[in-house]
Amino acid sequence: MTDFRIDLRRGALITAVLALLCSLFYVLPANAEPADYADCPAATLCLYSGANGTGERRDFTGTQSLESYDATWDGKTLSAKNNTALWACVYGAPAYGGGLQTVKPTNSDAYAPGAVRSHKLVPTRALCFTGYERCPDNRVCTFPEPNGRGAMTVHLPATDPVTKNYGNSYGTEPAPKSAWNRTPRHVCFYPEPTYTGTWADPADASGQKRFAAYVVLRGDSVTVPAPFAGTFRSHELVTTTGDCQ
């Protein structure tokens, strides 16, 4: 009788444990939360208006880099999932300007309100830091930020009536801090809108040493150094650098 009672107790304990395990198996799947960003399609960059892949979602493929968003979406992204094989570059200003954050392929990220105002998808992270690729062939392009970032100005060559060289005198666009010369000629930049002017050498305390035109050779892109950065107000295209004013 004693052994029989011990067996009954053991049997009751085993039955209770099995019942508890079964209840866990049945209850857990029903209450489990869906994985974050699970709704982001393959080969897609998904931007969300809420944290952790919640809220409204907008989808972009590798061919849909945007330099700006419509007013209803501008600065509204709070999280992102990069479900592509490319690097996602997100910027704090339109035209790939302002602050930069990068998202590795298959990774996600979170943002403060207003931190995402443009994006592009590129094969390598290094390409997130430049924007020169936007410049059309046979044009001089200038940018208000280093490395070809920010709103691009495309200069259409026009013959100056005095110099007879192709040139542009700038309007109200910001004075550039970087440029790409995609023409077959060299470009001479000047601090005055009349294709003239010089720069003082900051290393010369006497102020006597001056720089003339700042030259960007054909095919070259450049982040403009001091004292030239942010001071260009005109340029002309020339056959040889000796033709600069």
Results as ranks from 00 to 15, higher is better:
Asn147Lys: 14
Asp160Glu: 09
Lys164Trp: 09
Thr194Met: 10
Ala213Pro: 01
Gly219Ser: 10
Ala229Phe: 10
Ala179Trp: 01
Asp160His: 09
Pro193Cys: 04
Thr163Asp: 01
Thr172His: 10
Ala175Ile: 02
Ala205Tyr: 02
Pro225Trp: 00
Asp160Lys: 03
Gln208Ile: 12
Gly150Trp: 00
Ala175Lys: 05
Gly219Tyr: 05
Pro225Arg: 00
Asn181His: 02
Ser206Ala: 13
Pro157Lys: 02
Ala229Trp: 10
Arg185Asn: 14
Asp160Tyr: 02
His186Trp: 04
Ala213Lys: 01
Glu192Met: 12
Thr196Trp: 06
Pro193Ser: 04
Thr159Ile: 15
Ala229Thr: 14
Lys164Val: 14
Ala205Asn: 09
Arg182Glu: 06
Val224Lys: 02
Pro174Asp: 11
Tyr166Lys: 09
Pro146Thr: 08
Thr153Glu: 10
Pro191Phe: 00
Tyr170Lys: 03
Ser221Ala: 14
Ala175Phe: 10
Gly230Ser: 06
Ser221His: 15
Arg149Trp: 02
Asp160Arg: 07
Pro157Glu: 00
Met152Arg: 12
Arg182Leu: 11
Ala175Leu: 07
Pro144Gln: 13
Lys209Gly: 07
Ala200His: 09
Phe189Cys: 01
Ser178Gly: 04
Tyr166Arg: 09
Pro157Val: 02
Ala200Lys: 12
Val216Glu: 08
Pro157Thr: 01
Ala203His: 10
Thr172Met: 07
Phe211Glu: 02
Val162Gln: 12
Asn181Ser: 04
Tyr170Ile: 02
Val224Gly: 07
Ala175Arg: 10
Ala229Lys: 06
Ala212Asp: 10
Gly150Pro: 08
Arg218Ile: 12
Val154Thr: 14
Pro191Val: 00
Tyr195Ser: 05
Cys188Asn: 08
Arg149Glu: 08
Pro174Gln: 13
Ala179Cys: 08
Gly197Cys: 01
Arg182Cys: 09
Gly230His: 06
Asp160Leu: 06
Arg218Thr: 15
Ser178Pro: 00
Gly207Leu: 05
Pro176Glu: 06
Leu156His: 15
Pro184His: 00
Arg149Leu: 11
Gly207Ala: 07
Tyr195Ile: 06
Phe143Cys: 05
Arg218Cys: 08
Thr183Val: 04
Val215Trp: 04
Thr159Ser: 12
Arg182Asn: 15
Thr183Ile: 03
Thr159Trp: 11
Tyr190Asn: 02
Pro225Cys: 03
Ser169Ile: 02
Glu192Trp: 09
Arg210Leu: 11
Thr223Met: 07
Gly167Glu: 01
Pro227Val: 04
Leu217Tyr: 13
Met152Ile: 15
Ala226Gln: 15
Asp204Ala: 04
Asn165Ser: 14
Met152Cys: 09
Glu192Lys: 11
Ser206Ile: 05
Gly150Tyr: 00
Val216Ile: 13
Gly171Phe: 13
Met152Asp: 06
Ala212Leu: 13
Thr231Phe: 04
Asn168Arg: 14
Thr183Leu: 04
Asn168Lys: 12
Tyr195Glu: 09
